[in-house]
Design a protein around this nucleic acid. Sequence first.
DNA 1: GTTGCGGTTCAAGTCGACTTGAGGTCAGGC
DNA 2: GCCTGACCTCAAGTCGACTTGAACCGCAAC
Lengths: 158, 158
Amino acid sequence: MAELDITEVALRSGAPASTLRYYEDKGLIASTGRRGLKRVFDASVLERLALIALGRAAGFSLDEIALMFAPDGRPRIDRGVLAAKADELDATIAKLTAVRDGLRHAAACPAPSHLECPTFRRILSAAASGAERKAPAKELTRRVNRPGGHKPESPGAD
Amino acid sequence: MAELDITEVALRSGAPASTLRYYEDKGLIASTGRRGLKRVFDASVLERLALIALGRAAGFSLDEIALMFAPDGRPRIDRGVLAAKADELDATIAKLTAVRDGLRHAAACPAPSHLECPTFRRILSAAASGAERKAPAKELTRRVNRPGGHKPESPGAD
DNA sequence: GTTGCGGTTCAAGTCGACTTGAGGTCAGGC
DNA sequence: GCCTGACCTCAAGTCGACTTGAACCGCAAC
């Protein structure tokens, strides 16, 4: 099995070394040992990181994800939880779709002010009802350029 | 026009009084004056709050939303920005859909470990590539704040 | 054999959107 | 005329997921 140092894992996974340390701290991943001071990872950690990324994308928190790995390290994913999350995602998708349609309408609507457009007003009340905050939407484009400085140790983005 | 006190606005908008004060602080909404110490809002603030909710649902930050109101208070929404946001939403929806499908597959897949399933592994790499963190997904179930109904807490709990 | 770069630790900071707490004020009721 | 209590202000705290900073260590190169 290939042994990787943290930089390599960062490079291949796209996650900054600081994140990897953080994940190790949280028990989400584990290093197989040390070479001097330095962590050594087994290549399988990449798979694990992919799993974590999937979980994050699905809306699980890191803590929830941690629970999906048995203490021995192998993924012990409850299919029911997965299905429930999928349903949740469905709801989110539906809402986002509605908002998107509303946005598109507003972008195209000829009314002088959106507030005067009945369609827009309808969308408005819909948004007001279930809105909360389901939209992530960003983080897609940004995430490399944080305000206040560059990243000294993040690998060359993905 | 009806004058509302903060509690009433909270009741009707679903936003806690603390949030309304916060929004006023940020310049997102404005009170028309004071009755003694107490803020007085014009009923039109409800529309504004709905607009804000829509913006939040679409993934705009409060600061971005603030920029969509001209200094004079009337919404000055750039249709191009709206369309761009809609496109962004489309991307998010697509990603979320993929993740949802992955989740559903994992929930149904008979492989002893998900890692042994080629379909799952494919999903994994997909999630790993574009994942970052686009999923909000929660906030949907918690933070129950029904519009048609009434406030769980906020206004009086202050 | 010393320099230096890349890794390490741990604590603290950041970001966004609020919430909470302490302490203060004023309108209305008795 | 005093009490009550809803509302006020301002500062600080919270939450999740990281990032950053300071101080330190070791292997490889020179």
